[in-house]
């Protein structure tokens, strides 16, 4: 049986390493960090681990409804396509930093893309 994307990327250990780098990038990114101003950082890091596991094609319980409800308050504050793109861009940069191949990064981006409409409440 061929390896899943999640296994190819390194499983849970890879997710932990990626969250640490990714969240730092997001907080330093002036295009999107305003959406993270009032959050509890530890809870947010836990949520990002769940998100990253999903993006890596790992075991997850994410549903479209969760994504919609979880981001509705941000959509009211102006969350739009440009912010979604910025997050995906930071995710790609994180994986590049971790030495992941462009081919696998494209796979991760492809996993994230279908959540766009739910995240943005479209």
């Amino acid at each position: 049986m061929s390896e899943t994307l999640y296994e190819k990327l390194g499983g849970e250990a890879a997710v932990d390493a990626a969250v640490d780098i990714f969240y730092r990038k997001v907080l330093a990114d002036d295009r999107i960090n305003k959406f993270f101003d009032d959050v509890d950082m530890e809870k947010q890091a836990a949520k990002q681990k769940a998100f990253m596991t999903m993006a890596f094609g790992g075991p997850n319980n994410y549903t479209g409804t969760d994504m919609r409800e979880g981001h509705a308050h941000l959509v009211k504050r102006g969350l739009n396509d440009s912010h979604f793109d910025a997050v995906v861009e930071n995710l790609g940069a994180t994986l590049t930093e971790l030495g992941v191949s462009d081919e696998l990064i494209a796979e991760v981006v492809a996993v994230c893309e279908p959540t766009r409409n739910d995240v943005l409440g479209k």
Binding site: K43, A46, K47, K49, A50, T53, P59, N60, N61
Partner: peptide, 8 residues
Amino acid sequence: GCKQGGCQ
């Protein structure tokens, strides 16, 4: 929440 050790 997540039932997989993520959300705590």
